[in-house]
């Protein structure tokens, strides 16, 4: 099938497109098709210049999301565009909280399959092929759709592509509406709470310091936060300590969490289960501290410290403070 129009889900934070949005736009504009963005919310228009700079000619903004969770109305507006013949052939969505909601709603609404956890995309003679990192990142599964129905929906993990500006003019803003969607649209945001987290976001940070079970106790996670702060990085976590309730799900690095690709990743007291490796294996440099010399994390570490993170981290923190 040929692709003539691509829509990239454009999410914004503080009126700026998020990094995953720019990564997807960068990939999309290499495909020889019209590239447009689809987003929502008040003030979204102010992201039009940056969205154009990364290659979209138009920014379609859904104007009636209001206080709904975005999944239903944004999927509704895309479905309206599809049914009126103005929809895209290809829809690229970031694997974010709202992106996943939108993809799933749209898939069921249009009775179309969706490919998720994409870690690579390539164009072939038969259409778009998706890559998925499986079994701890040791293998790559290649998938494709076997239907010609459009839009083809791909949900792509962060850091799959590197964002590069194209220098395009500001995207033309068009407005879309979802209309009345009835009962499915009944989930409403009552209030928004920002949890103060100084420093960069986990999936955008240049340095990520993650902790795992080897820290022994929830209280010791403060070592991870302190070290991350000293290195101007972000704190992360293995699934084990998220499951144990030490830190929220948003901290989780791995298969069922976030993908990170920092300059340096410090894994402290993390054994390196396949679940975790998928999310951090493509960091440029990996430092691991673990008591077990046979821990799988050492097979991917550029610098492996066989030792107790609870002993190494305080000394490391002290030394960094002394230098500050």
């Amino acid at each position: 099938m040929s692709i003539s129009k691509i829509w990239v889900l454009a999410e914004t934070a503080d009126s700026k497109p998020t990094s995953i949005t720019l990564e997807l736009l960068t990939f999309a504009r290499g495909l020889n098709a019209t590239v447009e963005a689809i987003g929502w919310g008040e003030g979204a228009e102010s992201a039009a210049a940056e969205i154009g700079n990364f290659g979209a000619t138009a920014f379609n903004v859904v104007t009636d999301v209001n206080d709904s969770l975005p999944g239903v109305p944004v999927a509704g507006a895309i479905a309206n565009a599809v049914s009126s013949g103005n929809g895209p052939d290809l829809l690229l969505i970031g694997a974010t909280y709202d992106g996943r909601d939108i993809a799933a709603r749209l898939s069921a609404k249009l009775n179309l399959p969706v490919l998720t956890n994409v870690t690579g995309l390539e164009q072939s003679g038969e259409g778009i092929i998706a890559h998925h990192s499986i079994f701890g990142g040791t293998q790559i599964a290649k998938t494709k759709f076997t239907t010609d129905s459009t839009p083809q929906i791909f949900v792509v993990r962060a850091k799959t592509f590197t964002a590069e500006a194209a220098g395009g003019a500001a995207a033309t803003v068009n407005t879309l509406t979802a209309g009345d969607l009835g009962a499915v649209n009944a989930a409403k945001i009552v209030s928004r709470h920002v949890e103060e987290r100084s420093g960069p976001k986990l999936d955008e940070a240049d340095v990520v310091v993650s902790g795992g079970r080897g820290l022994s106790d929830k209280a010791n996670y403060s070592l991870i936060e302190e070290l991350a702060k000293l290195l101007k990085g972000a704190p992360g976590a293995s699934r084990a300590i998220v499951d144990a309730g030490w830190v929220p799900y948003s901290y989780q690095v791995g298969q069922t969490g976030k993908t990170v690709k920092p300059t340096v990743y410090l894994a402290c007291g993390i054994s390196g289960a396949t679940q975790h490796l998928v999310g951090m294996k493509n960091a440029k440099n990996i430092i691991a501290i673990n008591k077990d010399p046979e821990a799988p994390i050492f097979s991917v570490a550029d610098l492996g410290i066989v030792g107790d993170a609870q002993k190494v981290l305080p000394k490391l923190i002290e030394e960094l403070k002394a230098r500050a």
Binding site: L69, T96, Y97, K188, I189, S191, E195
Partner: peptide, 14 residues
Amino acid sequence: ERQTEAGYDEVSCP
């Protein structure tokens, strides 16, 4: 309380 990138949203749903 729904997890968001920035923190969480309080959501009401019938």
